[in-house]
């Protein structure tokens, strides 16, 4: 260990260290943008959430009143409960399915796997708005081809937009949008597992299922946990899909169907920006707390390297 620095020319190292300030200059433009377009607005939102604006009387400081209103809003919490349920179903389903596909492609036990990988990834190029629009037409009760198909195979008249079915419907849409993206990342990660390890396991008589679940899964676990984070943060912010479906079936997608919809409808729909800002801050805190909790748990179990 101690030999390694000695092998580097001394003068060069020292000269290098006097030239470290340009690093700060190089990162400045991005840090400036980050400050102006993320940090300043966040601070301002907190400030705004502590105010109340009245039509008569203008804006005045109101302390925690907006937060009390959000925390006491049954509608807001119902939305939080809904996205938690949504995340608990959608995220493991998407990642589990993606892992199985990626493992099959990686083992080479599927024909035409290049073609499949390309096709699966295509929805990444489809905006959520367009995805939700297509699926709305496909599932439209009475007319949509899939609604007719459900009728045809004897499921009867299924209303995919009813208040009971709307959440599973959104799970399917989001699964359609994000499975291929997760396949791509897990596949890339699986490819970096050295072949010799697999060969050695085969010599030892391990079956394919054992190799995939006991050998490869642990090796790509850091990638999977990262995907878990990203997918969960995305799921908790669910907005685009329900807001588009709302145009087709307003009665199934309520004012506070998800916390993001609550924020949008409160601020832009009802014009109560202060209350909307408070709701946005609470949502950010919930997501932050969940992330930190998961992070701490992962660290304690020694999975974070």
């Amino acid at each position: 260990m101690t030999h390694i620095p000695a092998s580097r020319p001394r003068g060069l190292g020292r000269r290098g260290s006097t030239r470290q300030w340009p690093g700060a200059v190089f990162i400045t433009p991005h840090m400036l943008a980050l400050a102006l377009f993320m940090l300043v607005p966040t601070v301002y939102a907190v400030y705004d959430s502590l105010q109340t604006t009245r039509l008569i009387g203008g804006t005045h400081f109101s302390g925690m009143a907006n937060y009390r209103a959000v925390l006491h809003s049954a509608e807001f919490w119902e939305g939080v409960r809904r996205v938690l349920l949504f995340a608990a179903v959608q995220v493991p389903l998407t990642i589990g399915l993606a892992f199985l596909f990626a493992a099959a492609f990686d083992a080479g036990i599927v024909k035409y796997s290049r073609f499949f990988r390309t096709v699966f990834f295509l929805p990444f190029a489809v905006p959520g708005v367009v995805a939700a629009l297509m699926w709305s037409f496909l599932l439209l009760p009475g007319f949509g081809p899939y609604a007719k198909l459900a009728d045809g195979i004897g499921l009867g008249h299924v209303d995919f937009f009813s208040s009971r079915m709307i959440l599973p419907t959104i799970v399917v849409i989001v699964l359609w949008e994000w499975t291929g993206y997760n396949v791509t990342i897990i596949y890339t990660s699986l490819k970096s597992v050295p072949q010799q390890i697999t060969e050695a396991a085969i010599m030892d008589g391990a079956r394919l299922g054992t190799i995939i679940l006991r050998l490869k899964l642990p090796m790509v676990w850091p990638t999977i946990t990262m995907l878990f984070f990203l997918n969960t943060v995305g799921a908790l912010q669910l907005f685009t899909e329900p807001s588009i479906l709302a145009a087709f079936q307003p009665q199934s997608v309520s004012f506070g169907f998800t916390p993001s919809l609550y924020v949008y409808n409160t601020a832009v729909g009802s014009g109560d920006y202060n209350l909307g800002a408070a709701a946005a801050v609470v949502l950010a805190l919930i997501i932050g707390a969940l992330s930190l909790g998961a992070f701490a748990l992962r660290r304690r179990r020694g999975e974070f390297a």
Binding site: P41, T42, A45, Q237, S260, A267, A277, A284, G288
Partner: peptide, 18 residues
């Protein structure tokens, strides 16, 4: 910079508007 990955877009878009 990396921690901004976890910031909800909803929580930035509305403040930006404000």
């Amino acid at each position: 910079v990396m921690s901004t990955l976890l910031v909800p877009i909803t929580s930035v878009a509305l403040p930006l508007f404000l």
